[in-house]
């Protein structure tokens, strides 16, 4: 039998599920930096991103037995769990804004769902990304800021912007694709 990547990933996650410390270490070695970078993108400080990374790996252990290699690659699964955790964290912040300490890189203002009709000022953890978002068409920009950077659900964004859900979904998908293209172009240009 050919030993496929999916099998190898399934075995790794089975070991993680059973609490095998060496498997958890292997999971961190493969995805720790990626998870931290995803957290750092949307959270205000390094300390907060490190806390989130710890919580994400605990969540990965708890959900390891649900990983299905037929449905997604392991990296997708890991980042899905990470993103969902970050979204939960962002939502908790929306409902309970924190007083930022000295470690915070920038001042951030989170808005509640009700307040969200007003212009938003999301986290500016990554200036390059923020600058590119500003160049997007208005609807794509609004949707990305609210859904990707602030953790609102697409339904909430749809209500906030008074736009059909399908339109919001398309705007988000196109906006993200456009961002990836633009940032990719910029990196190539700099290189």
């Amino acid at each position: 039998m050919v030993f496929q990547t999916g099998d190898e990933e399934w075995v790794l996650m089975s070991r993680v599920a059973s609490g095998d410390e060496s498997a958890i270490a292997e999971l961190y070695d493969r995805f720790g930096a990626l998870v931290f970078k995803a957290a750092r993108q949307v959270l205000t400080s390094r300390a907060e991103s490190e806390d989130a990374s710890q919580e994400i790996f605990v969540r990965l252990w708890k959900t390891a037995d649900r990983f299905d290699p037929r449905r997604a690659r392991l990296v997708t699964w890991v980042m899905l769990i990470a993103r969902r955790h970050l979204i939960d964290r962002l939502r908790r912040k929306v409902s309970r804004p924190e007083v930022l300490g000295l470690e915070a890189d920038t001042e951030s203002t989170f808005v509640s769902t009700k307040q969200a009709k007003a212009p938003v000022q999301p986290v500016e953890a990554n200036q390059a990304l923020r600058a590119r978002i500003q160049e997007l068409p208005e609807l794509q920009r609004e949707v990305i800021e609210r859904a990707y950077l602030q953790g609102f659900t697409l339904r909430e964004v749809s209500e906030q912007l008074d736009a059909p859900l399908g339109t919001v979904k398309s705007a988000l998908s196109r906006g993200l694709a456009r961002l990836r293209e633009r940032l990719g172009d910029a990196e190539q240009h700099l290189a």
Partner: peptide
């Protein structure tokens, strides 16, 4: 998509 560097911070842990 999930490993696209443009959607991730440059900082390392």
């Amino acid at each position: 998509v999930v490993v696209d560097s443009s959607m991730l911070s440059d900082e390392l842990p």
